[in-house]
Nucleic acid binder design. Structure first.
Length: 213
DNA sequence: TGCCAGGCCGGGT
DNA sequence: ACCCGGCATGGC
């Protein structure tokens, strides 16, 4: 599947973002949200000189919410960003290198323990900001896997993740490209309600069982 | 013009 | 342990 996707769509150059910190912020802002909206919110953050752990820590929540408004859920996301940068600023003096150093699984647990950072956001940060090997599972991954009959719709996040990690070399660049390709093909062909994809082995994939995890 | 977007949390059974 | 409502803007 990976080879077919790569041959068809080519390198996706993920994650879109200039610095690891920008990637972290984007990971929170894109929760259940169109990336286009996130770009505007990030542009606003840059314009306001707020793309920095300490700047966000010191910023009033109401103002932060206003700046990230285009990304939607701006009140909850302002809180979530503050929760995230609080750990960086308080525990690591804003030093991302220090924060990212150490065991991969411990890092993702540390991230996921922050309120507002779930499993996918944590994995996105570990893979795309820290460049460490962890496979990112999202709604598209779920749909594509289930509609191909590779797992049952009852499968949880961890099972999805392990399907990939158990069958691929532990290579961050491969995980990076694979997940990006799944999102690309998901956007184009595997939306919530889309007609059956050509070649799908199931007579009818389960529209009625949709939401993952 | 609804439906959807690169989820996650907290409270209620 | 599940289940569910809430959160919100902008694009197609």
């Amino acid at each position: 599947m990976y080879d077919a996707l790569y041959l068809r769509f080519g390198p996706q150059n993920w994650w879109p973002g200039e610095t690891p910190f920008e990637v972290m912020v984007g990971a929170v802002l894109t929760q259940n949200t169109n990336w286009k909206n996130v770009e505007r919110a990030i542009a606003n953050l840059k314009k306001a000189d707020l793309l920095d752990p300490f700047a966000i820590t010191e910023c009033a929540p109401e103002r932060l919410a206003e700046v990230i408004k285009p990304a939607g859920y701006y009140n909850v996301k302002a809180r979530r960003l503050k929760n995230l940068v609080c750990v960086l600023a308080e525990d690591y003096e804003g030093d991302l290198e220090a924060f990212f150093s150490g065991d991969v699984d411990e890092l993702r647990r540390r991230l996921a323990s922050i309120s507002g950072v779930g499993l996918e956001t944590a994995d996105s940060i570990v893979l795309y900001a820290a460049g460490k090997p962890t496979f990112v599972v999202d709604a598209y991954t779920f749909r594509i896997v289930v509609r191909h009959g590779l797992l049952f719709p009852e499968a949880g996040y961890h099972e999805l993740k392990m399907l990939f990690e158990d069958n691929l070399p532990r290579d961050p660049q491969l995980y990076n490209e694979y997940h990006a390709l799944l999102v690309k093909v998901g956007k184009d062909f595997c939306r919530k309600r889309s007609p059956r994809c050509d070649g799908c082995p199931l007579e009818e994939f389960p529209h009625e069982v949709e939401e993952p995890f």
